[in-house]
Write a protein that binds this DNA or RNA. Structure first.
Lengths: 146, 146
DNA sequence: TTTGTCGTCATACTTTCGGGTGAATTAGTT
DNA sequence: AACTAATTCACCCGAAAGTATGACGACAAA
């Protein structure tokens, strides 16, 4: 803003000098004062318009629109290490969240049901959960599962 | 827009007349030509600025900023009726998803644990779920719970 | 008034879950 | 080679969850 005003002033100064030259060399001697005034009027009008445009250049209307969240899930590896949860345990947490029973998980992973029990037990310990539903809840809160 | 230009022109005309009067009565006779030029410059500059402002008055830059909406959940009432799930059952589904046990839910709602069992049983039937984790999963998919 | 839905509760039984303990195997590190 | 972490598996027991069935009262609709 200050820059514009400064520029405006400089242009004015230059113009004055220019006018002086014009005045003494051609116009006043050869033509009428109307031309002189008209020139000044024209130039300053143009400058004024330019300044006006500059002054209003930054009129912006910001519209904030909410778009549906793009479902970007990124695993919170830090928390994983903090809690000491292993890959296998995380995998099982995901399957539990998927609504599978221990037996189904065991079949899916080709291991015994007891193994799944061991994993989930340790998982619950690390998550401070007592039930699988609670574990799912915490897992979501901690950013371990989507 | 045209109105503005017209006004501008009229102002200019009035000014010319005014200047003529000023010219012949005071200024040119008594003062130097610089005052005359300065006056014209000032007036036209003001007019120019005014016109510039008018011209750009409606030129607003509209910036649309898209912001991810923070999980706006709306209950799917239609599906609720389709499945014949009652308010109470939905309430219990929510608490199950929150990781509560049947006993905890019973205490929270001041009813017996058997009641919760009955409700959840019927709920699982309607959701075609065999386990509470599965019910939670389906509930989320069907838009019954956040 | 009858009918139907909803919410409540109970009893009995089966299945699943979760806790505790111990241990073998594998893979990676020092 | 020794050590550690991760994974695997087993057995037992109690708690929680789920199934099946029946019942009762409130309340609204037909």
């Amino acid at each position: 803003m200050k820059k514009h005003i400064l520029t405006y002033g400089l242009c004015g100064g230059v113009l004055i000098v220019l006018l002086k030259l014009v005045e003494y060399r051609f116009l006043v001697v050869e033509h009428s004062i109307e031309i002189y005034g008209g020139l000044i009027a024209l130039l300053f009008a143009v400058l004024g318009i330019w300044l006006g445009l500059k002054l209003t250049k930054n009129k912006e209307t910001i519209i904030v629109r909410e778009v549906p969240a793009p479902q970007s899930f990124t695993l919170n590896e830090t928390r994983l290490r903090e809690l000491g949860i292993t890959r296998r345990e995380l995998e099982i947490l995901g399957l539990i969240a998927g609504g599978l029973s221990n037996r189904e998980i065991a079949e899916k992973l080709f291991v015994s049901e007891n193994t799944i029990k061991t994993h989930s037990s340790r998982l619950f310990d690390k998550l401070s959960a007592r039930r699988r539903t609670q574990a799912v809840q915490m897992g979501k809160e901690l950013g371990l599962i989507p």
